[in-house]
Design a protein around this nucleic acid. Structure first.
Lengths: 198, 198
DNA sequence: CTAAAAATATACCAATTGGTATATTTTTAG
DNA sequence: CTAAAAATATACCAATTGGTATATTTTTAG
């Protein structure tokens, strides 16, 4: 059964995750947390060990939300190569969607945690690796299905894709201009068409 | 002439710029500043209006350093297209070099200032625009010199280049793996070769 | 409905935050 | 060498920081 505390924990994360994502670890204070949730420190510290523990849970919460959204979107096709196109299609709406999350958690927390918070940075690394592995697997599935040329290195391609996407997200947010994401997705679509085709 | 205060200001910036760059605005405290410099608050506040003013000066200091380094490197050739290759060549050593600066100032402060510090974010935007304009001008020079195809849109290409580079820097720092920068520079070199050629 | 357990609120803590007014020291121009 | 000006150090400020011990309230199982 769902205890009261579990509900509260979920509620806290819902409210607090975008705040940590937007502001970063150091710039989010516990009074930000109590003000936003309407709860007291007693409730917060009853559910989370400390600020770092809360920040990590918040990051995981946001990533889970995001991953579910991608996975749902990719379920629109069974073809590996079509799924690749669905990835770029997903990111074409990412600026709007990620604003709800308080920005891209990987970019924000990746940069924020660097030199600041080892545990948090470790979590970001793990998420990036997981994403790259999933994309690489998708490409390998495509090779196996005869949709994608067996010439290409799946993991390398996945890393390139990821790198370009993160660059586009950074530029779009910093310049407040969706051009960067749209243009990068065009570029990636072209790469898929030209480099992956059988 | 150089007054005492000007020397002190420069000294403070030299010491403090990498700290702000590494930690970000909120996570850098004035005691970090006084401890690192060995000066007191009196000296700091005598030379800078407040913490924000210092952070902006620190960002400009780091960018100036970086820009000089790039400009120096590009002076190794007079050919516009060769200069483009010198840009990727510069970034191949960027992981090592930028560590001295406390990381890439554009990436770090761009992400850090977002949702946090309007003035600082504005400075980042200006620097990005300046860089893109310079690269675009370089490409236009190449077109005029008959080295580069007149088909391509100089500013679009400059933006793509910048976006890919920033993505590579983010990934290399977050994953602590220079692969991303090297691979992206290979990719860009290829783009220059294939897309820009006459 | 009740007693125990769980969850939350309250009241406190020392340390630190950015910043300022003023005293002291150092530099500068003559 | 000296007086004025500039630069820096000192001593202070209220507000906030993350965190804890304990009191109170709410939930839960029987």
């Amino acid at each position: 059964m769902t205890t009261k505390a579990e509900l509260t924990s979920q509620y806290i994360l819902e409210i607090v995750a975008p705040i940590f994502n937007k502001n970063g670890y150091a710039a989010t204070s516990l009074s930000d947390v109590t003000n936003a949730t309407g709860l007291t420190k007693g409730a917060i510290y009853g559910n989370f060990k400390n600020k770092e523990d809360l920040a990590i849970a918040a990051f995981k919460f946001t990533v889970k939300n995001m991953m579910k959204r991608i996975t749902d979107h990719l379920s629109n096709s069974n073809s590996p190569i079509e799924k690749l196109y669905l990835i770029t299609d997903f990111y074409r709406n990412y600026y709007d969607y990620s604003k709800e999350l308080g920005g891209c958690p990987i970019l924000n927390i990746g940069v924020d945690a660097n030199n600041q918070n080892t545990l948090l940075l470790q979590k970001v690394k793990e998420v990036i690796e997981r994403i790259q592995d999933q994309v690489a697997t998708l490409i390998e599935d495509g090779i196996e299905a005869g949709e994608i040329s067996s010439e290409i290195n799946a993991l390398y391609f996945a890393k390139r894709l990821d790198t370009m996407i993160q660059g586009a997200i950074f530029m779009t947010y910093t310049m407040e201009d969706d051009f960067y994401i749209q243009d990068t997705m065009d570029l990636i679509d072209n790469m898929i068409k030209k480099e992956l085709k059988i």
